[in-house]
């Protein structure tokens, strides 16, 4: 379970998040939306313990990550998988080395065993291992890179929580569909908490039933699709903008279709 309690966070003098509070239950899927620069990605960095808030506390499964030593955070991160924006693959390493990174660094497994697991994972995320395992990330398409990043996060940790930072930004429709399908498959099959940060509203509706809208560092909305559609808050209405008109259609197509 993820608990955010009255979080203030900023860089230097500028506050990025102001009094942000929410809970995410185990196995719950949540999308955090908002315009660029609203502080969405910062929420993920705080959950992962890469940053510490100036005020408030963040609890992961009841443990306050803000007061943990780095060593304890590293232990906790083993239960959190993170897919960074643009994948953040190590560009000087092959796809195989990227996906098996954690195993190479933290276990004494032989390369044969690591390679076996890497191939299995690449298959799980829908990629042809024999074709790409020895390639560098730059040789892959954007969609393939995201799926490799998801595979790396899964093989690196035994996740109870998966965090996705803009997983579909910049992808073509087919790749977007593949990545969203994979996110849903993971959430369903592994019964994990999923937090997706995005400003792509159509994608958001495809992966969760709960939505948090952040505007200029504050939670402007926290609720379900119907609440989002009918929300009267100007900040939310402005963010949804022209998309509001077609939300019902999207809902029919994606959201109400058992997502």
């Amino acid at each position: 379970m993820i608990e955010f309690r009255n979080i203030d966070f900023g860089y230097d003098e500028k506050l990025v998040l102001r009094d942000v509070s929410f809970d995410i239950d185990p196995t719950e899927s949540v999308v955090i939306m908002g315009p660029s620069g609203s502080g969405k990605s910062t929420v993920l960095r705080l959950i992962l313990g890469l940053e510490c808030p100036q005020r408030g506390e963040i609890r992961i499964d009841g443990r306050n990550i803000c007061v943990m030593k780095e060593k304890d955070k590293q232990e906790l991160r083993k239960s959190i998988g993170m897919v960074f924006q643009d994948g953040a693959l190590f560009d000087s390493r092959t796809v195989g080395e990227n996906v098996g990174y954690y195993l190479i660094e933290h276990t004494g497994l032989s390369w044969q065993e690591i390679e076996r697991r890497v191939r299995e994972m690449l298959g799980f995320v829908g990629l042809d291992a024999s074709e790409i395992i020895d390639k560098l990330p730059e040789e892959l398409s954007g969609g393939m890179q995201r799926r490799v990043a998801i595979g790396r996060a899964l093989l690196s940790t035994d996740p109870k929580i998966m965090l996705y930072d803009e997983p579909t930004t910049g992808l073509d429709p087919q790749s977007t569909e593949n990545v969203l399908t994979l996110i849903n498959k993971l959430t369903r099959e592994r019964s994990i908490s999923t937090v997706v940060v995005t400003h792509q509203i159509a994608d958001a509706l495809g992966v969760a039933k709960r939505f948090i809208v952040i505007h200029e560092g504050e939670v402007a909305f926290d609720g379900d699709f119907v609440g989002l559609r009918d929300c009267r808050d100007d900040r939310v209405r402005n963010f949804l903008g022209p998309f509001r008109a077609s939300m019902d259609l999207v809902a029919e197509k994606k959201f109400m279709n058992g997502v």
């Binding site: 590293q74 083993k78 993170m82 953040a88 990174y101 660094e105």
Partner: peptide, 8 residues
Amino acid sequence: DAMRSFGI
């Protein structure tokens, strides 16, 4: 950050 998220 990815490195840190893997405990390195």
